[in-house]
C-alpha cells in the first residue's frame, strides 16, 4: 500500500474507533436516553388538554401524591389549578440551573396565573456544597421563605460556589433575608431535613432524571434551560391555546402583519426581510 493511502486509512480507522468508542460509552451510560414521555399531554393533537386530564395521568398523580399529600413541605408557586404545571429538578451549584432560573422567571411573568411551579431538590454528588445548600434552602422552607432564599442562592452562586466552605456566606444570606438564625442553624444539621431532600431526589431518580436542570412541563421532560425556553414555552403556549412563537420570540400572526405592512414602512414594524417580502407579494 502506498504511504499516503496507508496514512490516511489509519487516520480514518482511528477516528472511527474514537467515535464508535464514544458512542458505545454514551449508550452504556444512558446519555441522551430519553425515556418515554412521562405523561400523555394530548390524546389528539386538536384537543386542548384540561387541567384534570393532565393531572389525572398516572405519573403526575404519582408525583402529586408524593409531593402534595405526603409532603407538607411542598415548594410551589402559582395557583394549584393552573393549566400548566412545571416540576423542576435542579442543583444549586450547577451553572446551567442558574441560567434556567431566568427562563422560569420569564415564564411566570409572561403567563401570570397560568403556571404552577414545583421545585424538587436534586443535589449532584459532583458538587461539594450542593447538599449543604439544599439543606439550607429546605431550612428556609421551614420558615416559609423558600423562594426568596432559592432566588438569592442562585443569584449569588458565583459568590459561594468556590473551593472554600460556603457556611459563613449561607448564614449571612439567611440573616440578610430575615430568617430566624437559631432555628436555621439547628435545622442545618437536622437528619430529618436531609432525609427529606434525599427522598425528593429519589423521586427524580424514579423519573430517570440524569441531568440538571430537568423539568417536567405538564409531564413532558425538558432538559436544560435552553430547551426549556424553546420546547417548554411551546408546550405552555399549546396548553394555553396561544399561537406559537417565531424565531424572534414574537407571536406568529401572519395575517395581521401582512395587513400592517401595507400601511406602515417595514423599518417601523421591525419585521425580518423575509416576512416583508412575503407580505408585499401577497398584498
Amino acid at each position: 500500500m502506498k504511504k499516503p493511502v496507508r496514512y490516511v486509512s489509519v487516520g480514518i480507522i482511528l477516528a472511527g474507533c474514537i467515535v464508535g468508542g464514544m458512542l458505545f460509552l454514551r449508550h452504556r451510560a444512558g446519555v441522551e436516553k430519553r425515556p418515554e414521555r412521562v405523561t400523555v399531554v394530548r390524546e389528539t393533537p386538536k384537543e386542548k388538554p384540561t387541567v384534570e386530564s393532565v393531572l389525572a395521568t398516572e405519573s403526575v398523580v404519582k408525583i402529586k401524591e408524593e409531593s402534595t399529600a405526603k409532603d407538607p413541605y411542598l415548594k410551589s408557586q402559582g395557583p394549584e389549578d393552573a393549566p400548566v404545571q412545571i416540576i423542576e429538578y435542579s442543583d444549586y451549584q450547577c451553572p446551567a440551573c442558574r441560567f434556567s432560573q431566568g427562563v422560569l422567571h420569564g415564564f411566570m411573568k409572561q403567563y401570570p396565573g397560568a403556571i404552577r411551579l414545583i421545585y424538587h431538590h436534586f443535589p449532584l454528588q459532583g458538587h461539594p456544597w450542593s447538599s449543604f445548600v439544599h439543606q439550607a434552602a429546605e431550612c428556609a422552607n421551614e420558615q416559609g421563605l423558600f423562594w426568596v432564599f432559592h432566588d438569592y442562592v442562585f443569584s449569588h452562586q458565583s459568590e459561594w460556589s468556590t473551593p472554600l466552605s460556603p457556611t459563613q456566606k449561607i448564614l449571612s444570606y439567611a440573616r440578610d433575608l430575615g430568617l430566624n438564625l437559631d432555628q436555621f442553624a439547628a435545622c442545618l444539621t437536622n437528619e430529618g431535613t436531609k432525609r427529606r431532600i434525599q427522598k425528593e431526589k429519589a423521586t427524580g431518580d424514579d423519573l430517570k432524571v440524569n441531568a440538571t436542570p430537568t423539568f417536567f412541563v405538564n409531564g413532558q421532560r425538558v432538559v436544560g434551560g435552553f430547551l426549556l425556553k424553546k420546547e417548554g414555552e411551546k408546550i405552555i403556549r399549546e396548553t394555553l391555546g396561544l399561537p406559537p412563537l417565531d424565531e424572534e420570540g414574537k407571536e406568529k400572526k401572519e395575517v395581521e402583519i401582512k395587513n400592517k405592512v401595507v400601511k406602515t414602512p417595514a423599518t417601523q414594524l421591525k419585521l425580518p426581510p423575509k416576512n416583508v417580502a412575503t407580505a408585499k407579494e401577497t398584498s
Binding site: V31, E32, P95, A96, F99, S100, N210, A211, V223, G224, G225, F226, L227
Partner: peptide
C-alpha cells in the same frame, strides 16, 4: 452529558 447541558 446530555447535549442540553453543553447547550446551557
Amino acid at each position: 452529558e446530555p447535549i442540553a447541558q453543553t447547550e446551557a
